[in-house]
């Protein structure tokens, strides 16, 4: 459930290629174990394929590719972060660190990264995490 009080909000904090990122819990539907997606040739580079999430087909997205990083190499810590932003999809992440209540008033501005925007840098116990603009990220998949 969303827990927003004044400037406090809950975020899922995760790692992509040794960098920390954060998404509001309102956009996160769950965290699921890794499984190899069914590949669909001829799609955008960031689309890893399709996974079965309890009978529902979800697009598996390599967020690293959208952010200009090298594609994910799955390890035992890799997970799919199930998200919703107009559509449901599964974002491949290297590791989920925690679900944290973060103070938005402490957010620092960040420059745009690649072709998509971040919404700021948020201080966490693990260090600063980039607050991702999920709509912009997913919107860039078929426009990049």
């Amino acid at each position: 459930m969303s827990q927003v009080t004044d400037q406090l909000a809950q975020f899922v904090v995760f790692i992509l290629d040794q960098e920390r990122f954060a998404l509001p819990v309102e956009q996160a539907r769950g965290i699921e174990r890794w499984r190899t997606p069914t590949r669909i040739p001829g799609t955008a580079a960031a689309i890893m394929g399709i996974i079965n999430q309890r009978g529902v087909l979800l697009t598996a997205v390599d967020m690293r590719v959208i952010l200009g990083m090298k594609p994910i190499t799955p390890t035992r810590r890799s997970r799919f972060l199930l998200v919703h932003e107009q559509i449901d999809c599964a974002i491949a992440v290297d590791q989920v660190l925690d679900m944290l209540q973060l103070d938005l008033s402490l957010a620092e501005p960040t420059p745009h990264r690649g072709t998509v925007a971040s919404r700021g840098l948020l201080p966490t116990p693990f260090g600063f995490a980039t607050w991702l603009d999920l709509a912009a990220l997913l919107g860039s998949i078929n426009n990049g």
Binding site: I40, G42, T43, I47, I50, L57, T59, V61, I87, N142
Partner: peptide
């Protein structure tokens, strides 16, 4: 089943 829209939007095959 139809492909999810994120996939079908970019698929030309």
């Amino acid at each position: 089943q139809p492909l999810p829209s994120l996939v079908s939007d970019s698929l030309l095959d």
